[in-house]
Design a protein around this nucleic acid. Structure first.
Length: 691
DNA sequence: GTTAAAGGATTTTTT
DNA sequence: ATCCTTTAAC
């Protein structure tokens, strides 16, 4: 097998191992995905495993997709290998056994916002105290954390929430969500665990089917996920987990580093293989990363090394504030290497300074992570309509759509509908009709007709057709057309894109349910425009698994990165996780690494003095070099009346010229009639000779 | 029940 | 600085 030759000795050892459980500790950039995919190919091709008996679990859809693609290219029959995220695997298991779980086969999946919306209605009847939106978020997150640990309302929840009545709220929420035939993210793991414990025959069948289980990014697994794994595992089967304890960065979501660190103790006889050769970064970048992460105590410890050349020393640039920090990035980007560059930050909101500058300078960028497509208001609206079609007991979906667009059916009337008799919200709506005033009644009848018409055509039409009709008939189209005009948004366009997204799905209820599941579980927000040259703006968390020629790690200020919002509650574990996050950021870089920090920063509209990140002081002197001012390079290049040319906008004349903060600014009147402003030092303007 | 103004909270990180 | 929720007016 030729693809084996591409591996180093340790990687080969990992691929060829069989027998007791295997823990692969794979350092950053050590070729871990290659090892897993090769292992799958080897098992099928050389060891004769049935592809159907192999289960590979990842954390993100992106990782799952990549693994699928790579395995498919290596071996025939690989489409039968089950490669899924933990959550989609849980959903798969629950759908197959929905009858035993007391769920409808097409149960709907609730995201965090849906959880909050449901809690809001549930808690009204359970507690007297006033619940604010923040309280709701807190409780929702406590419920998620409890589920991450596989804890039910009957278990001891004191470690989750101080609130003595938390278990009451949790119980009320849980019985309501089950009654409606819905499941939140946490349920997708916890319910399968409990289900397998109570149904040994089903468990046995699954154990017989999946004789090989591989888990990627194991350092980010939570307890429930570990429990699920334990339910699956038995001695005759093969279990292989891959991860890097130094890259465990999701404890806020319930991930427990202990899972990987203690793995050999929990599975005695575990074989441990370390992949320590790094293929990604230069020697200097790797050394810096290693030196900083060595400050962590809770780790197994690896010694990363590389055959790559040392490369340039990483650079530190101290900016006066976030705007100058952005200017520095723009300065580096003058070389035009957009695709190869990523600007990393700790918090999403930090992207703003970069965005506003890059728009002005016309530097092309893409933002990864924020404002995901399916989280947009208009998309959630149409999704709610569809969810309601699939499951008309779904109260959250119903509440979202009943008065969207406004139909005059507000809180009072909604309450009437909810308390009227009926098995689901369509029946309830019909039954309340006689009690309503003429105007409200007409509107509700219209709504009912929209739903029933969609139900009628759903089996006989393409999904795109159904969605398109729904958008028009529900009134969302007119509603957002108006809104687009007033607020200059592009919501209609997004709805249009949504229709396109349904294209590859089969028709009917079944196809719709498939589409909804895929949409809710797939958070990937990749734009399809990869071919265009763009700088990547991204949170450090989102960079997991990515790499870039040049990385700029920004906002290296104490309190920001490491993030310390409630310093009193922070302990060593939190700092160690922040340090791991720093390590993740650093090890994304292939060739060039820059750090930036600000002396002062705009926080809630006020400038606050900042201090250097403690992580910077953990970097040995000889691993870092300072970068001196980017200014003083500018001077006067243009005068009013000069003829200029620009590669994108053509030729024009300088209309105005002035200095702003040591930067030369001009406004150009292009011959096309457009007026555009430039900072000359960052623009592609060229002076033309007068002829 | 809907719209406008004012006041208050927000900032981790996401399957 | 901006977004969101609550309150007051129509």
């Amino acid at each position: 097998m030729h693809y084996i030759d591409a591996l180093n000795d340790k990687q080969k050892e990992a691929v060829f191992h069989l027998g007791p459980p295997l823990l692969i500790l794979a350092g950053a950039g050590s070729g871990k995905t290659r090892v897993i995919t090769t292992k799958i190919a080897w098992l099928i091709q050389e060891k004769g495993y049935d592809p159907r008996s192999i289960l590979a679990v990842t954390f993100t859809n992106k990782a799952a997709d990549e693994m699928k693609t790579r395995v498919l290219s290596m071996v025939d029959g690989a489409e039968n290998v089950m490669i899924k995220t933990f959550h989609s695997f849980g959903a798969w298991l629950m759908r197959r056994n929905s009858h035993l779980l007391g769920l409808p086969p097409r149960f709907s999946i609730y995201d965090d916002d849906d959880m909050v919306a449901l809690l809001k209605t549930v808690l009204k009847t359970v507690v007297k105290e006033k619940i604010t939106a923040q309280n709701l978020r807190w409780i929702a997150s406590s419920i998620s954390r409890a589920k991450d640990k596989c804890l039910t309302p009957d278990d001891d929840l004191s470690a989750i929430d101080f609130d003595k009545s938390f278990h009451i709220k949790y119980r009320a929420y849980q019985s309501r969500i089950e009654e409606m035939g819905c499941a939140d993210f946490g349920d997708l793991i916890m319910r399968p665990v409990r289900f397998l414990r109570e149904n040994p025959q089903v468990k046995k069948r699954l154990q017989q089917r999946f004789t090989v289980i591989l888990v990627d990014e194991f350092q980010d697994s939570n307890r429930a996920q570990f429990e699920l794994l334990k339910e699956f595992y038995y001695e005759d089967n093969y279990l292989c987990v891959v991860g890097d304890e130094d890259q465990s960065i999701y404890s806020f979501r319930g991930a427990e580093v202990q899972n990987i660190v203690e793995f050999p103790k929990i599975f005695p006889g575990t074989k441990v293989i370390m992949l320590e050769q790094n293929y990604r970064s230069t020697g200097n970048i790797l050394k810096l990363a290693t030196k900083v992460v060595e400050h962590n105590e809770y780790r197994l410890g690896k010694n990363l090394w590389t055959k790559n050349k040392n490369g340039d020393l990483p650079v530190l640039y101290q900016a006066s504030d976030q705007d100058e920090e952005a200017l520095f990035c723009a300065h580096l980007l003058k070389d035009g290497n957009f695709n190869g560059t990523a600007i990393l930050y700790r918090n999403n909101y930090q992207s703003r300074a970069f965005e506003s500058l890059f728009i002005r300078l016309r530097i092309p960028y893409r933002i990864v992570g924020t404002l995901r497509f399916y989280e947009r208001e208009e998309i959630k609206d149409i999704l709610a309509y569809l969810k309601f079609l699939v499951n008309m007991k779904d109260e959250v979906a119903f509440t979202r759509i009943i008065n969207k667009p406004p139909r005059g059916i507000g809180g009072k009337n909604q309450e009437k509908i909810k308390t009227s008799p009926g098995n689901d919200y369509l029946e309830k709506s019909k039954n309340i009709l006689p009690e309503l005033s003429k105007k409200i009644k007409d509107n509700l009848v219209y709504f009912i007709n929209v739903i029933e018409e969609s139900l009628r055509i759903i089996e006989s039409h393409e999904p795109g057709e159904v969605v398109q009709q729904l958008i028009f008939r529900s009134g969302l189209y007119d509603h957002y057309k108006e809104k687009d005009k007033n607020d200059n948004t592009m919501k209609l366009q997004n709805l249009e894109e949504f229709v396109n997204a349904t294209a590859s799905y089969p028709g009917g209820m079944e196809g719709l349910a498939l589409f909804l599941e895929a949409t809710l579980l797939d958070s990937s927000n990749e734009n399809p425009y990869v071919s265009e040259e763009k700088v990547t703006l991204i949170t450090v968390h989102n960079t997991k698994g990515l790499e870039f020629d040049r990385v700029i790690l920004t906002g290296l200020e104490d309190g920001l990165f490491p993030h310390l919002s409630h310093s009193d509650f922070r302990d060593d574990n939190d700092i160690e996780e922040e340090r791991r996050l720093f390590y993740v950021g650093v090890t994304r870089a292939r060739k060039e690494l820059y750090f930036t920090c600000c002396i002062k920063r705009l926080v809630f509209g006020q400038y606050i003095s900042q201090y250097l990140s403690r992580f910077l002081s953990e970097i040995p002197r000889d691993c870092l070099q300072p970068f001196h001012s980017i200014k003083a390079e500018s001077g006067q290049y243009f005068s009013r009346g000069d003829r200029v040319s620009h590669p994108e906008y053509g030729t024009g004349t300088i209309d105005r010229r002035w200095d702003n903060d040591d930067e030369e600014m001009v406004i150009v009147r292009f011959d096309s009639g457009r007026y555009l402003q430039f900072i000359t030092g960052y623009s592609k303007l060229e002076k033309l000779q007068h002829s």
